[in-house]
């Protein structure tokens, strides 16, 4: 069996009366892209904060790269890189100064830092802005700089907290490409996202988190299969969506679904079939009573 990059058992965390994590069990194999998908306030950032040693859990265990996040903090820190939700860069410094500062803090000598900084800025297409203060950077540039800084030295596990929130489509796709390339380098990427498409496109394994619990885990295909093979969409004449129903896609199943729905809908409603999207998965998993067992 491959070594697990991240493993948690029964992680719990509350802030005051609010329960943020309510018993989270995860196991993330090395070398994959793992997406934690959930709405705002589901506990994604808290989980990353615990895994990256920023916050202590109230109960439960967590190991990253084989080390306990509470008892072996320094070893965990030697194994991870974190790109937080808010770009972790210094606004008053230039891009170049930011990267060089982290090079020095990572233990590179001044001359090594200089070379490595130049290389990172070039790879992330930031050379032309290298001498400008980060304050003047666009959202996409900040994110690229943030990632560049996270890759100063090789760390086996990279945490990305909502890496593309607030980015335009092009910046988002650029980042996706970079993230996929990180996996080729053998880095385990643990990312959180609110975007279903992002998890679908990038992740080898997705866990859906809602209300501080993991409600489902699987590959994108497995999760989609969970809501059925085909989704019936019913729309009125103005193309407004009336209803969606998951089915197995067989004649018998579709016929039965339609005959049950027919009396409830106008007779001129239109029917179409499509493959389930991650949205369907998400709605099915987070609005229904919790499904706790994992399907992977």
């Amino acid at each position: 069996m491959k070594q697990l990059a991240i493993e948690t058992k029964g992680l719990k965390k509350r802030f005051g009366k609010q329960v943020v994590l309510d018993g989270v069990d995860l196991s993330v194999p090395s070398g994959i892209i793992y997406a934690l998908l959930g709405p705002n306030g589901a506990g994604k950032t808290t989980l990353i904060n615990i895994l990256s040693t920023l916050t202590a859990a109230d109960a439960g265990e967590a190991r990253v790269a084989g080390y306990d996040v509470a008892a072996e903090k320094t070893k965990v820190k030697m194994s991870i890189s974190l790109t937080g939700q808010f770009a972790a860069v210094d606004e008053m410094l230039t891009g170049e100064e930011n990267v060089r500062m982290i090079c020095r803090l990572s233990g590179l000598s001044p001359s090594e830092s200089k070379t490595r900084t130049a290389e990172l800025l070039q790879r992330f297409e930031l050379q032309s802005a290298a001498g400008k203060r980060v304050k003047s950077y666009s959202g996409g540039m900040r994110r690229r700089l943030d990632l560049a800084v996270s890759l100063v030295v090789d760390r086996p596990v990279l945490f990305l907290d909502e890496p593309t929130t607030g980015l335009d489509t092009i910046s988002r796709q650029t980042l996706w490409k970079i993230i996929l390339q990180l996996k080729e380098r053998g880095i385990t990427v643990f990312l959180t996202t609110q975007y279903l498409e992002e998890a679908d496109q990038l992740a080898d394994t997705i866990s859906v988190i809602d209300g501080g619990r993991i409600v489902a885990t699987g590959t994108p295909a497995e999760l989609k299969a969970r809501v059925g093979e085909e989704v019936i969409e019913l729309r009125d004449r103005n193309e407004a969506l009336l209803r969606t129903v998951s089915t197995s896609g067989t004649i018998a199943d579709v016929r039965q679904a339609l005959s049950e729905l027919a009396p409830l809908l106008p007779p001129d409603a239109r029917v179409s079939l499509r493959k389930p999207s991650m949205d369907d998965v998400f709605l099915a998993l987070t609005s229904q009573p919790r499904l706790e067992e994992s399907i992977s």
């Binding site: 020095r104 990572s106 233990g107 290389e119 030295v153 990180l182």
Partner: peptide
């Protein structure tokens, strides 16, 4: 990505 690999050295000392 063609980023070269850079294994992590001992991290920066207290003084650095």
């Amino acid at each position: 990505m063609n980023l070269s690999s850079r294994s992590a050295p001992a991290s920066a000392s207290f003084l650095v």
